[in-house]
Amino acid sequence: MSPHRAIAAVFAVHGAVAGSLATRIPWIQDHLGLGAATLGLALLCPSIGAFVAMPMASRLSYRLGGATTTRILLALWCVVLALPALAPAPAALFAVFLLYGTAAGMCDVVMNAHGVVLERHLRRPIISGLHGMWCLGSLAGGGLGVLAAHTETDARVHLGTMALLLLVVGVIAGRGLYRERSDGAEPAPRRFALPPKAVLAIGVVGFCGTFVEGASANWTAVYLTEVAAAGPGMAAAGYTIFMLCMAGARLAGDRLVHRFGPVAVVRVGGALAAVGGVMVVVARTPLLCVAGFALIGLGVAAIVPLVFAAAGHAGPTPGEGVAGVATITYLSGLTAPAVTGWVAGGISYPAAFALITAVAVLMVLLSAVMRPRVRPTPAAELTPTGV
């Protein structure tokens, strides 16, 4: 397996773990008898675990090597997938979700940093395509989860089986990853890597992109139901179309970046998302709303991958740059659904998406900070870790 295919498979496995668990949350809620408030608190735990742990990922990667760290954290996350369905009580579920988020967030950092290293080596953009593979993995994992839920398969059996299967695939993919051997010129990252100054402006673009993406993904079905009077099937289809548009745009994103550059891609993507947001705000029919969400998905798809790539190139080290900007984007992921809900409840759903549209416009205004600022790369040799 080539290094590019190996890291693409790692992203797909990462996405499949997330997609698999997302479909079985209702089973876990019913199994433990959780109320809405308790479930909401439980679902906050993965983001908290990731937010706290991600700043330490670059240091761990420096000590063990990017490839080794990626393999370990991906394996840990695959194993943890089996645990939420086994939790005997809410307190245990909280602890499992904290561990789940810790492994997910740290793996997210190191695999993106590894992608940046490989991108430098190949001298062509690959990060957007890797995130496209994450979307495809998430859709595949979610699809199997929907099938398992439809056939009333016990989530303990389903998630345990998926954990084992994805662990095997992850181990095989990990053998093809590359190990960077530096001459020692690369500085050791800090033990707790808060965002460096060099990536703060990039992080703001990432915050906006994640805000638009997270708010839209979480509220698409609800908006279609409450505002456009869509039925359950159309509401579910709206979310699926949104995700498919994101996956397709990310898979095509590397070619667009290679041809037009990251500034133009972010600028046009932000404008496209803003147009989609306006359509959602003014629409009162399901089809027009779905079209608006599709444009939002197409427009915002490449933003986060480009932010990770830009931060990896601009930071003191790839791992530290990615860790810093990932902390900012995860903070956005924490706040976006809640802020959207507060505005929707306090004013209206269209007002909430007017705010999301304004955030998309802000991405357009800030797009110039994505101009490439590649640091001189120290002498390094990339060698495969597999046999």
Rank of each mutant, 00 (worst) to 15 (best):
P3W: 07
H4C: 02
A12M: 14
A12K: 12
G19F: 01
S20H: 03
L21M: 05
I25M: 13
I25S: 10
G40T: 13
L41E: 07
L44V: 11
I48P: 00
M54R: 00
S58R: 11
R59M: 02
L60G: 01
G66A: 05
A67W: 08
T70R: 05
I72C: 13
V79W: 05
A87V: 06
L93A: 04
L93N: 01
A95M: 08
E119G: 09
H121A: 15
R123E: 14
P125L: 14
P125V: 09
P125R: 13
P125S: 02
G129T: 10
H131I: 05
M133P: 03
G137A: 14
G145C: 06
H150G: 10
R156I: 00
V157A: 11
G160N: 05
T161N: 14
G170V: 03
A173V: 11
A173N: 04
G174C: 04
R175E: 12
G184L: 02
P189V: 03
A193L: 02
V199L: 00
G206V: 01
F211W: 11
V212H: 00
G214K: 10
A215N: 07
N218K: 10
T220R: 07
A221K: 11
V222P: 14
V227N: 03
A236H: 11
G238H: 12
T240Q: 10
M246S: 05
A247D: 01
A249M: 14
R250Q: 07
D254Y: 01
F260K: 10
R267N: 00
L272V: 15
A273I: 08
V275K: 08
G276P: 09
M279C: 04
A283Q: 06
A283W: 08
T285S: 08
L287T: 12
C289I: 02
L298A: 13
G299I: 06
I303Y: 10
V304R: 01
F308Q: 13
P316S: 14
T317V: 12
V325H: 02
T327H: 02
G333M: 06
T340A: 12
S348A: 11
Y349K: 11
P350C: 00
A351Q: 13
T357L: 00
V359F: 08
R375D: 01
T385A: 11
